[in-house]
């Protein structure tokens, strides 16, 4: 029993470390800065990072399966661009635009997954190609930023859902949380989700155990593409514009959030809840720096870089301990 307990504990070390980090950062912020300690600061984390959370959840699927998706930032940008162009130039209703954008994202992911699986090419290079393609396609729509004045979008952007105690959240934050719940159920309680873990554990074994490797692998990239498109839709609400330079480098933030959330880059181990913590840590760093006031925003990058180093070393150490 004791052995089981310590084993459970050891499995969750990266997750616990991240949770501890989050609590520490929030405590330090609360002690140091006036007005930091409030529920709304936490909720704002969620509101400001809803799109990143959705994208990072998609990335979690890919990394759990042992792959990587570099195209997410570009797909987000393309989604904002397609949305803005359809709404502003062609006056499509929001209810037609959003499903189309989601379908484009999922389709793009599906195609990349298909190429990765069929031709046995490194996901790194295929999604890199996807990244260039999607980013480039943005500029075929327009090289300029397209602002959105459509009433459907502006009302989504301004909508606030009141909570007790004078606090509020945005619809985007709620959507992001629903995505997290859906991803959790999918990963932990469906056969397909377990196949994702098996694929990340050992593709060779998954194949020999008769698991549907092709369907799983392609599906993972389709999910990531879908999440990127949804992230793009949420970013469109947030920015009220479409632009080819939106979400530059977002793929790296998403990967960082997943890794800080305790998912192994080699695949097979990790939790979608860890990714939530990872996104919150990234958001909190930004919040602390903006409260601090004098530090340049580049410090966010520096802190994230340092944290990433610490976490990959931590992962390596727990993996080595396990083997011993």
């Amino acid at each position: 029993m004791n052995a089981t307990l310590s084993r459970r504990l050891r499995e969750h070390v990266p997750l616990l470390v991240t949770a501890l980090l989050l609590v520490t950062m929030f405590s330090v912020g609360s002690v140091s800065y006036q007005g930091f300690f409030s529920g709304q600061v936490l909720l704002n984390l969620l509101i400001d990072n809803a799109f990143l959370l959705v994208v990072a959840v998609g990335m979690t699927f890919v990394i759990l399966s042992g792959g990587i998706d570099l195209s997410v930032g570009a797909v987000v940008a393309l989604s904002t661009m397609v949305s803005a162009a359809l709404v502003e130039h062609h006056h499509w209703p929001i209810l037609a635009v959003v499903p189309l954008v989601l379908a484009i994202g999922a389709g793009a992911g599906w195609v990349m997954g298909w190429v990765i699986h069929t031709f046995e090419i490194q996901p790194f290079i295929v999604t890199l190609a996807g990244m260039f393609l999607a980013r480039g396609l943005c500029y075929t729509i327009s090289v300029e930023s397209i602002s959105i004045t459509d009433s459907g979008y502006t009302s989504m952007a301004q909508a606030r859902i009141p909570l007790p105690g004078g606090m509020f959240v945005s619809p985007s934050a709620v959507i992001a949380l629903l995505v997290v719940v859906a991803a959790f159920v999918l990963l932990h309680h469906t056969r397909w989700g377990r196949n994702v873990y098996a694929l990340g554990g050992s593709e060779q074994s998954a194949l020999l155990m008769g698991l549907p490797v092709a369907r799983t692998k392609i599906g993972v990239y389709a999910v990531s593409g879908f999440c990127s498109a949804l992230g793009g839709v949420l970013l469109t609400f947030y920015m009220l514009s479409g632009y080819g330079l939106h979400a530059v480098g977002l793929e790296l933030d998403a990967i960082a959030a997943v890794v800080i959330g305790g998912t192994l880059l080699t695949g097979g181990t990790g939790y979608v809840l860890g990714t939530v913590l990872g996104v919150l840590v990234l958001g909190l760093i930004q919040t602390v720096i903006s409260f601090q006031g004098t530090l340049s925003s580049w410090w966010t990058r520096i802190v994230i870089g340092a944290l990433l180093f610490v976490f990959i070393v931590l992962q390596r150490l727990t993996a080595l301990r396990r083997r011993a």
Partner: peptide
Amino acid sequence: VNLCPNLSVAENILIGREPRRLGLVHW
């Protein structure tokens, strides 16, 4: 051995054929 070291013994025995309830894995 062609199993997945990251999964539990139970999952390794049953993965791909997990008993389900309402479409979800019945753990």
